[in-house]
Amino acid sequence: MNFLQLNNFNTKLRNLFFLGLSLIVFLSSTSIIAQKSYTIVLDAGHGGKDPGNLGNGFKEKDIALEVALIVGKELEKKDDIKVIYTRDTDVFIDLWKRGDVANAAKADLFVSIHCDSHTTNAYGAGTFVLGLRGNKMNLEIAKRENAVVLLEDNYKERYKGFDPNSAESVIGLSLLQEENLDKSLEIASLIQNNFALKLNRNDRKVKQDNFQVLRETIMPSVLIELGFLTNKYEGKFLNSKIGQKQMGKSIADAIKNYISNLKLNTVANKIADGAGLEKEKEKQNGIEFKVQIASGKNKISTKPYNFKGLEDVEIVELGEYYKYYYGNSANYNEALKSLEVAQQKGYKSAFIVAFKNGEKVSVSEARK
Rank of each mutant, 00 (worst) to 15 (best):
D203M: 00
D203S: 03
D203I: 00
R204W: 02
K207D: 06
N210W: 11
F211T: 02
F211D: 08
Q212R: 14
V213R: 09
V213K: 09
R215F: 03
R215A: 11
E216S: 06
T217F: 00
T217H: 02
I218P: 12
M219P: 05
S221N: 02
S221H: 03
V222D: 10
I224R: 04
I224D: 07
E225F: 02
E225L: 02
G227V: 02
F228P: 09
F228H: 10
L229W: 01
T230W: 09
K232Y: 10
K232H: 11
Y233R: 15
Y233F: 13
E234Y: 05
E234T: 09
G235S: 08
G235Q: 13
F237V: 10
F237D: 15
L238I: 00
N239T: 10
S240N: 12
I242F: 14
I242K: 15
G243M: 03
K245N: 04
M247H: 05
G248V: 05
G248M: 00
G248Q: 01
K249G: 04
K249M: 01
S250W: 01
I251L: 04
I251R: 01
A252V: 03
A252G: 03
D253P: 00
A254L: 06
A254D: 07
A254S: 07
I255Y: 03
Y258R: 14
I259Q: 15
L262H: 03
L262S: 05
L262E: 07
K263F: 05
L264V: 12
L264N: 14
N265Q: 03
N265A: 04
T266A: 12
T266V: 06
V267M: 08
V267S: 00
A268F: 02
N269P: 01
I271R: 11
I271D: 12
A272E: 12
D273A: 14
G274H: 07
G274Q: 05
A275Y: 14
G276H: 15
E280G: 15
E280L: 13
E282S: 12
E282A: 13
Q284L: 15
N285H: 08
I287S: 06
F289M: 08
K290V: 12
V291Q: 09
A294Y: 13
S295I: 12
S295A: 15
G296T: 04
